[in-house]
Nucleic acid binder design. Structure first.
Lengths: 336, 336
DNA sequence: CACGTGTTCGCAAACGTGTGTGTAAAAATA
DNA sequence: TATTTTTACACACACGTTTGCGAACACGTG
């Protein structure tokens, strides 16, 4: 079986006895080309199964149809959904997306970024890794004129556009709900201190306590991370305290599920002994028993919004840093 | 803020007063270039923040580092996981992946395929849409020398490599398990007739019945699809029969969950009134009540295996069509 | 008929890299 | 010293596309 070379614009030109520039223009409906010629060229292009070579086109135009996306892990429901939203919006605007995962690893994130830059992506959409402390790789991309927008997990040290949910109000609402249900010793399984998302949810938690005159206790806050293991570790820590908390506000649902595991193992009942509120409304949270009360975080919409924002930055060529905040919603179920 | 143009090989050459071809060779450690020159060039390239332009390189070499991936929907757990596996393996081999979703829509799948071909992807990984009947768009890619491997959902009409699970034995095992638990009227919520995956699971179901001398009843099979809605529709159909089935083998977990909904609504108990077995071991299936007995399908491994197979085809340049079959495992829980 | 004007197309250069060939100078050999 | 070989680089072209410029031609106008 021979490896047929793909038809080029020149092949079409040769076959028709015209210059290849004429073919180029014809395919793009240039007014200088006679309608009949256009029709003829388009027909033979079709029949020769011509597909434009984006490399040559992009090389010439110095612009691509590529958008880079970096997430910690594709398999996580939230990111999978967000990528789905990104792809949807990208498709509408004629882009295709290159997806990389950092596996929550800083080094890998840097490598991904460089690879994407080499592939001359038009813009970059990032939800940063849990282990990332330094944002030089992103800053460099921006400094060279690249358009970047963070979604969900943004890096504070980098001045870039971002799409996030109202983490502050989400944290506030979750905590307030626990308070209104009569909880007094509310613990917080927090994320990592470097991520804005963690800090804002934490701040919402603190401000809710303050508003209702509940003393803030530093030892009721466990800074861990976003994985189930972090929730397990944090819950075990909290149960070692001489006075148990009466409720938990977890930074996200996986962490909350980690807490569930520990509580179940220790024979503690949810919500009678300890109430739990999560964050992100993972589909599992509706199915676990008791169903988890949580803060809904529109993942698909967030991906879509991030891509839309990126597109605006791309077409306007302006360099304003925008911050788009999506609303959250308290989903009341049975864990409180 | 000025949009700095990225440094090219020529910029480096000009700055150093050498020819750009020398720079090109130096960066690739060509033996014709003096070690000192190489060192000098590499240093200034580093300092000028040079990133090779993949477009120019690919255009010249007529090969890319791009792998196309088309799935029905990124957000589905199975596909998200598979994409994660693909990305992992692709990363190891120096590829980046372009991900598109067909939204179970044939037209969209064709558009995606064309777009990927235009972007001169090196190879294509596909799980085909539910509505796809014709595979001409894939066949054309293959005929032009492109390497394609289907994973999970393969199209029979296209002669291509594929990575699938042992759907036949999976279907067989699921049905056999129901039989051994004393079930006699076993219904099957099947997928679509065009997909091999559906047919094999169906065949496994039939052969298990035959082996244990249980009569096959055509009206106990509902050909629907892979979504929750299909499960709902199918279950409603089955409950309209004058004699209810005593158990259900669903083509996948979402369909099984659809069946759960209908049964719950009708006040029927699982597994006492009707037992249910799913397929794919969606994470939710462990959390729903009763926990769903299902066939485990290694999604991440499947994505990884598909990418590995594609890579072998790419490096060997051979054109053999390989079929890789992954093992399934029966996960026994509480729905039977 | 000379001229301007508009239509339709060809020519050539360019984008950033890679590579085959040519060619000085340096080194090795006779 | 004269010759050959090797070293280290320059030159030019190619990949497939886009685009400015200009040529050939047809037409209408004075």
């Amino acid at each position: 079986m021979l490896k047929n070379k793909k038809a080029t614009i020149k092949d079409i030109a040769k076959k028709l006895g015209v210059h290849h520039s004429t073919v180029s223009r014809a395919l793009r409906d240039h007014p200088d080309i006679h309608p009949n010629t256009i029709k003829l060229i388009k027909r033979t292009a079709e029949q020769m199964n011509y597909q434009p070579n984006m490399f040559a086109r992009n090389l010439k135009n110095n612009q691509t149809n590529l958008i880079g996306v970096i997430v910690p892990e594709i398999k996580h429901h939230f990111f999978a959904n967000a990528i789905g939203g990104v792809e949807e919006a990208a498709h509408e605007h004629g882009y295709v997306i290159i997806v990389c995962q950092s596996n929550e690893d800083y080094e890998r994130e840097v490598i991904n970024t460089k690879a994407l830059i080499s592939n001359r992506i038009e813009g970059l959409l990032v939800s940063v890794s849990q282990t990332t402390r330094d944002g030089a790789h992103f800053q460099q991309f921006i400094d060279e004129g690249g358009k970047l927008v963070f979604f969900d997990r943004a890096l504070e040290s980098v001045n870039a556009s971002k799409v996030i949910v109202d983490d502050y109000r989400g944290g506030f609402k979750a905590t307030e709900y626990l308070i209104k249900k009569g909880k007094k010793r509310i613990a917080h399984l927090a994320g990592t201190k470097e991520l804005e998302i963690s800090k804002l949810r934490y701040q919402g938690y603190r401000d809710a306590l303050k508003k209702y005159n509940i003393p803030f206790r530093k030892n009721l806050v466990f800074w861990g991370g976003f994985q189930e293991e972090d929730g397990i570790e944090g819950m075990e820590y909290l149960l070692k305290l001489k006075t148990h908390p009466d409720s938990i506000f977890a930074v996200n649902d996986p962490a909350a599920i980690g807490a569930y595991e520990v509580l179940e193992r220790r024979g503690l009942r949810i919500p009678e002994d300890i109430a739990v509120v999560g964050f992100s409304n993972n589909p599992i949270s509706a199915f676990i028993k008791p169903a988890l009360t949580t803060i809904e975080q529109p993942s698909y919409e967030m991906g879509k919004a991030a891509m839309e924002l990126l597109n605006e930055m791309l077409v306007s060529k302006r360099n304003k840093k925008t911050k788009k905040i999506l609303k959250t919603k308290l989903i009341i179920r049975d864990s409180v």
